[in-house]
Nucleic acid binder design. Sequence first.
DNA 1: TGCCTAAAAATTGTATACAAAAATGAGTTG
DNA 2: CAACTCATTTTTGTATACAATTTTTAGGCA
Lengths: 219, 219
Amino acid sequence: MAARIVTGLQQAILEHRLPPGTKLSEDEIGEVYGVSRTIVRSALQSLAHDQLVTIEKHRGAFVARPTIREAHEVFEGRALIEPRVAAMAAFKIDSDSLKLLNAHMEAEHAAIAAEDKGRALALSGEFHLEIANIAAHDVFTDFVKSLVKRSSLIIALYWKRPDTTCESHSHHALIDALAQKNESEAEEIMRSHIVDLHSGLNLTPTNDASISVSQILGG
Amino acid sequence: MAARIVTGLQQAILEHRLPPGTKLSEDEIGEVYGVSRTIVRSALQSLAHDQLVTIEKHRGAFVARPTIREAHEVFEGRALIEPRVAAMAAFKIDSDSLKLLNAHMEAEHAAIAAEDKGRALALSGEFHLEIANIAAHDVFTDFVKSLVKRSSLIIALYWKRPDTTCESHSHHALIDALAQKNESEAEEIMRSHIVDLHSGLNLTPTNDASISVSQILGG
DNA sequence: TGCCTAAAAATTGTATACAAAAATGAGTTG
DNA sequence: CAACTCATTTTTGTATACAATTTTTAGGCA
């Protein structure tokens, strides 16, 4: 089934093993997973719908390359939705989900300690998803899912801070607020966390130009 | 190409010519549009991703049948996002887009006058999309698109008011606020408009039960 | 009649074959 | 040597053939 291929490709994209702009050949992927192009095409179309992949007619599929504008919009979207989701999660959280969150943060720490940047970033995104799952609001969860995935591509292209550790603090503060079931505090911490992430991006036009040059040169 | 089929099916679904639960046979659709099942499947998968269609393994595709819970969530989502979008539109609107909105509302009136309920409803949804287009924020516009489409299915299942005219008043007030570029008023009118739509639904569990019975009987 | 069983038909899932378009590269010419 | 042309090769787009599963229907039995 196509789901396995979607998952596999998605994971590779979110961990930056397949960087933005990478060509995704149907034959190649089909051979890797041992399926026909029919299935691969279905998987690629699914990823394209999530905007992780761009399909150009008669040219093929490529890992998407979000524009600067798109980057701004994605984080503006997160700044609107995720604080609300955090508040809902604070209201609904129980001890089991709290344990899950803590375990997740430990995994993040481990990945950072192992200097596996891609994995650390993917886990950091999944942390936001866990909170959305606790909120248990499918519509909002789907939006968060979509935005978090796209954020991973945006970070691959535009992240300017050398360290990712600064995030751990925010996530810890978020867990505290959730544990106390403090809705307004969870909401506010999430809001400022998203704004902080947004500000960690280098979204100057110059940057964009240099990228498109490297695209032309490096393929 | 599949886009033509997606558009055609979508329009039929949004105008309630294909009611929730309708079986969408691949062969039948392929014959109507003169293409092979390959293309039809691609179109159906695209619609499934938008949650207008449900695909059951080895059983086929059906026009989606949103649950009561889903209905609540969709309108909660709209209540969060669309007021912000309306405020952005109020800030960005120019005379051209204002004319477009007015023309759109006239088309709505015409459809209501012609007693074409399905068309009137579809146009009423498109009105919200026009506002999102004026806001010119792709992320939010995509969210609104998705939620408005799903709302159409929800209304097909759960709408309890006999009249649709009550909406025209809200849309008129919205245009006024936008014309004045009054962001906070546009935001507030949109918020209460969405809440009003939400309250126009009969989302009692009883209703759901009766529907699942009719599904079992009628297929 | 009512219900269970099994063969037949219809429908979806997947692979493959063929058509169309784009990328590649050798050869030619200025 | 650079740049253009055209045949070759590769890759994607679509249709079709075959496999797997479900639905339907006919038949038998209590």
